[in-house]
Design a protein around this nucleic acid. Structure first.
Length: 129
DNA sequence: GTTCTCACA
DNA sequence: TGTGAGAA
């Protein structure tokens, strides 16, 4: 049933709708697009149009951000997924998107996952870079 | 009224 | 990332 995938990939929402659905600012949404985290289409008026898929990705990004990941970490997750599609295409292991995502998430969080903590201990009057 | 691009505090 | 200017 590829029908749904097609529909999910149809860019039909203006940025205003996406803002409400994701609680992100227009600035952030456009920035993530610039970072190649999502790929929007433009309509006749040069307006960005977003698909349900884009919204899903944006929602994920927001979760990653909440857990202290930075743009670099998030980009890795999505770069890795593309890489995985190209190189494991012919079925040595069959990890699902979800599996790949969870594995990378765990790795990255455990490496740079203490951002929030160090932030707290350095917050007031702490040393500046 | 909404969104776009670009620039700057 | 936020915000404002000027245009579409």
């Amino acid at each position: 049933m590829k029908e749904k995938e097609l529909r999910r990939s149809m860019s039909v929402f203006p940025i205003g709708t996406v803002m409400k659905l994701t609680d992100l600012t227009a600035r952030q949404i456009r920035y993530y697009e610039e970072q190649d985290l999502i790929h929007t289409e433009r309509n006749e008026g040069n307006r960005r149009m977003y698909s349900l898929n884009d919204i899903d990705v944006l929602l994920e990004i927001k979760d990653y951000l909440t857990d202290g990941l930075n743009m670099a970490g998030i980009k890795r997750i999505y770069e890795m997924q593309e890489k995985e599609k190209l190189s494991f295409q012919n079925s040595t292991h069959q990890l699902t998107d979800h599996d790949v995502r969870r594995i990378l998430y765990d790795e990255i969080v455990s490496q740079s996952g203490m951002i929030g903590k160090s932030k707290d201990s350095f917050q007031s009057g702490g040393p500046r870079l």
